[in-house]
Every structure is written in structure tokens, then in C-alpha cells.
């Protein structure tokens, strides 16, 4: 099975190397044609406004929405969470979201870079030990719909959520050696 990593801007190369270390075949996605044969997709962290604009300019908004609605597995981290969400708060007026998962995200809800942090988080679906979550100018998931399951929280707010085959985290699993979240994604 081939896993795609959206490579418009951001931490796509780190996700790719984590997935490859798990034996996955990975392709970088920059255009609709790159999605051919892709069975699973990672939407990485980066600057969400930049990713939204580039997705629009390179005609990826429609194909990405279709991909997420097709039931194939999608992992969105940080900016990826924002792009996958149903509603964006504190975004640009022209910023797009795919509506792939029924959550609202508030950009930079945890503050600026001086407020960025790392913290151990219990994630029951990943078992012990706790997962080391790195949050970089992280968004806040400010609302979750009924179809969405909260898998972990940080500061009492959802940090890892799932709906069907779509998993969304506000933190960056690609920044740590722990591969359990990527492994879970590959098992969907």
C-alpha cells in the first residue's frame, strides 16, 4: 500500500522518513495526479494559510476532499488538523478547510512560539507509556461533533481525535522517535 504525504509546505519530509522507517512506500503529493494509487494520506504540520493557498492554486482542494470522504485513512497533524476541520476560527477570510471531520479548530489557540510546549500525554489507544506530545503554535480543537471520538486531551481540550478513518492531532508525532501513532494510522 502506498501512503501519500501532502508536500506543499511544512514537515512532510519528517513524516515521510517516519513512515519509511515502518517499511511504508511513500509518495509526496503536490498535484492531483500524485494521489493516484495512494491508499492513505498524511497532511502534515506547517503554516496552514500557506498550505490552503497552495492547495487551491494547484487544484488540490477537490481531490483532497474526495479522498477524505472516500473512507481512506487520513492523518492530519497541527496545520493538517486545521485543513481537515469543518470550521476554522482565527484564520484568514479566504482560508479553506475540507470539512472532512466534524471539528472546529482555532488557529494558534495555544499562543505564539514562546508558548509552544512539549508534554507527556496519556493516550489509552496507544497504551503505556505516555506519548510525548510536541505542540508548536498549536491549534485548539474548540468543538467536536457527535461523530468524533476524543482519544486524548491536553489542558482539558481535545488533542487527538478520530472519526472513522480520519485521525487528527494538534501535536507533532513526526518530531519524536515514538512511532506508535504512525503505526496506528497504518493499521486503519
Amino acid at each position: 500500500m502506498t501512503t501519500g504525504v501532502l508536500a506543499l509546505q511544512g514537515a512532510f519530509a519528517l513524516h515521510q522518513s517516519r513512515l519509511e522507517s515502518l517499511g511504508e512506500q511513500v509518495v509526496q503529493v503536490r498535484a492531483p495526479a500524485d494521489l493516484q494509487g495512494v491508499e492513505r494520506l498524511v497532511i502534515p504540520g506547517g503554516e496552514s494559510t500557506t498550505v490552503s493557498m497552495l492547495a487551491e492554486r494547484f487544484d488540490l482542494l477537490g481531490p483532497l476532499t474526495e479522498f477524505a470522504q472516500s473512507g481512506k485513512a487520513v492523518l492530519g497533524t497541527c496545520a493538517g488538523a486545521i485543513l481537515l476541520s469543518a470550521e476554522i476560527q482565527d484564520g484568514r477570510a479566504d482560508q479553506h478547510c475540507l470539512g472532512a471531520i466534524d471539528i472546529s479548530t482555532r488557529r494558534n489557540g495555544f499562543g505564539r512560539q514562546v508558548d509552544s510546549f512539549e508534554q507527556d500525554v496519556q493516550i489509552p489507544v496507544l497504551g503505556d507509556p505516555p506519548f510525548h506530545a510536541v505542540c508548536i503554535r498549536a491549534p485548539v480543537i474548540s468543538r467536536v461533533g457527535e461523530s468524533v471520538t476524543v482519544l486524548a486531551t491536553i489542558d482539558s481540550r481535545p488533542a487527538l481525535v478520530r472519526s472513522g478513518a480520519i485521525i487528527v492531532s494538534i501535536f507533532h508525532p513526526e518530531l519524536v522517535e515514538d512511532l506508535r501513532l504512525h503505526h496506528l494510522f497504518l493499521s486503519l
Binding site: A7, S116, I136
Partner: peptide
């Protein structure tokens, strides 16, 4: 939570890539 660690500081640089 820990702020200002190398991981957190280098992490933002990773987000600028591309």
C-alpha cells in the same frame, strides 16, 4: 508542559520547511 526546549524550538523550524 515544558516551553523553550530544543525540541520545541527546532520543531518550529521544521514547520517552515518547503
Amino acid at each position: 508542559p515544558t516551553t523553550g526546549s530544543q525540541l520545541v524550538k527546532r520543531g518550529l523550524a521544521e514547520m517552515f520547511c518547503g
